[in-house]
Design a protein around this nucleic acid. Sequence first.
DNA 1: TTTTATAATGAGTAAAAACTCACTCAAAAA
DNA 2: TTTTTGAGTGAGTTTTTACTCATTATAAAA
Lengths: 203, 203
Amino acid sequence: MPRTKEQYEEMRNATRDKIRSAAMQLFVHQGYGSTSVQDIADTAGISIGLLYRHYRTKDQLLNELVGYAVEGLKRNIRSFESDQSPKQLIARFIDEVYTDLSNGEELANLLILINQALFASAGTDSQLHEEILQVNARLLDATAQLIRKGQQLGEFRLGDAKEMAVYFYASIQGLAEMKILLKSNFQMPSPSVMTAFLFKVGE
Amino acid sequence: MPRTKEQYEEMRNATRDKIRSAAMQLFVHQGYGSTSVQDIADTAGISIGLLYRHYRTKDQLLNELVGYAVEGLKRNIRSFESDQSPKQLIARFIDEVYTDLSNGEELANLLILINQALFASAGTDSQLHEEILQVNARLLDATAQLIRKGQQLGEFRLGDAKEMAVYFYASIQGLAEMKILLKSNFQMPSPSVMTAFLFKVGE
DNA sequence: TTTTATAATGAGTAAAAACTCACTCAAAAA
DNA sequence: TTTTTGAGTGAGTTTTTACTCATTATAAAA
């Protein structure tokens, strides 16, 4: 008799992992359109045929990867809707971003992937494109809300909260890209630099 | 007798312009790899054959466009090496970025194009890839130098100047991308938000 | 050793994309 | 009206890429 269900599932999971990380790496580092399926299979160390047993199209593969990234964003929205002090929430978030961007490429990859997916699906009105934009809008709103609360508490600098939220995420996105593009020449700004435009006091 | 040299040159310039702006638009909005030469010709309103009379390869077209963008960066470096007050130089620069990003897509296109070119040429060690990275490094250094001077003059907040310069450009890059992706939903942060992390005083 | 269920392969196919070239078109002046 | 010259065309060719399928490899248990 052949292998058990569990053994087969384990095998399948292992190759799916290989495919996902190869695709992530390539999509992020050279762009979706410039990455061929052959590329992905080679990087994953498997055959094209096997890749297609797991993902019906190149597009579906991108969609799955982006799906995970979008989940991450949603978790963030939830955490920002907490009742804790805005300053603490933002400070904790920035600390996480700082350590993630300092140590590994995972967060940078997620952020860039979402970006790539948005550009790649620009003309088409795919479900995914719309969903990303929508989640993004909600994230910006939740953050602006948090900033407003912080301003009322006197912890945050004054200024248009929505604009500050836009600037907040724009800078994180920019940092992610710089990290990947500049490689070892990238020097991650410390949390105090990143929050200086938000928090009062400082020095 | 046929048209004069000047008339022919005028015709050629006109089509080159059409090609350039079509290519810029498409490379920026859907990515280099996801843009076909046929796409570009169609958008420019000319035939593929004519496009290839002007640019030998799709790659060469990208290179020319990026070349202009890099020139723009170089002009910036020079302006930052001026003897004027750091605060004034930065403030003027941010004002320019603000009006450019508020009104048109030109600056955003340039910034995103450079980014795209870096990603597209990631694996290969093309001359262009190297040049962009080098110009970028010089720009960061010049800016860090300016920030240091501003700190000595007591106009700028304290903190690692290089990190602050990285954050400065990361945020601008991020804003450019947000502008293009969010379209009419994008709200450009005012100069005061953008400089709050740099300048002392302020609210 | 043989059976069996499913993972894995990669040459093969069809579609799309990059690039070519033999030809037409346009307008100025003879 | 004809000639001239370089812009402009797009069907055709070559190369690359996404995707398929007939076949092989594997390892557990009978």
